[in-house]
Amino acid sequence: MMDLSSINPILLVASIMVSATPILLAAIGEMVVEKSGVLNLGVEGMMITGAVVGFAVAVNSTSPALGFVAAALASALLALSFGLLTQFLLSNQVATGLGLTLVGLGLSSLIGKPYEGMKSPTLPKLDIPLLSDLPVVGRMLFSHDLMVYFSLALVVAVWAFLKHTRAGLILRAVGESHDSAHALGYKVVMIRLMAILFGGACAGLGGAYLSLVRVPQWTEGMTAGAGWIALAIVVFASWRPGRVAIGAYLFGGVTVLQLNLQAAGAAVPVALLSASPYLVTILVLVIISARGAHAAPASLGRPFHASS
């Protein structure tokens, strides 16, 4: 029989937050990209590039902070190639995005070969005065590293940016109808390029969080589909920041829970447990999005050329 008492609820919640952070970072970045009307299927490739570059830089510089910065820059650079191809040379977004994933996976295993099995410096846990000392809640919610809080702050910032700022309104307008936006004199291609860079940087941070904090070491193919889950979460979250956060935490939560259940010897086939995060996340988000408007940006994935 399984022994549920071996699962410590405090550690469970704490590890859920750690587990959800990489997907949340990648998903919120991709959401901004899609809000601008661009579909970048290369999230997985950008994440793993971020993971390996972040790891390599952190090991060589012994500074995890520098690792995160380098990861964001490297993935943004990869995203820039996607941006140049799709926005200026008008290549097909789906094919280019898939290509980006393949390039990222290949490139990362090449860069990562010398780093296999190494240990990297990791981010210190913050010690927040008063809050960290609270019983139970302190260890659950307030004893994490900076990136956990950064990712949550980013969700709020993206929400506020899209809802309340003029730049956010312009970004949504470009994703809604690039022809109208162009007629009003907005620079559709430049705005989309900025969004693509932002999405790349976020995916890179997510990847680096995997290799520097969550695991923390480098193994080939370590993202294991996290980028694809981030993409799915954006769609099922109906392009809303709050729901993206719910989706990411749900996925992270079920992942950690099923690992705990496996360790506790639950009488459920291991394969089913391993698949459960994917199944539960998609199921819940489908139920949420089945009601009401889906609100996909109307120009999503459509190429734009200012020819008329």
Partner: peptide, 10 residues
């Protein structure tokens, strides 16, 4: 504009 330069979802 003739073909309105509007955004349906906004």
């Amino acid at each position: 504009f003739q073909h309105f330069s509007l955004f349906d979802a906004l």
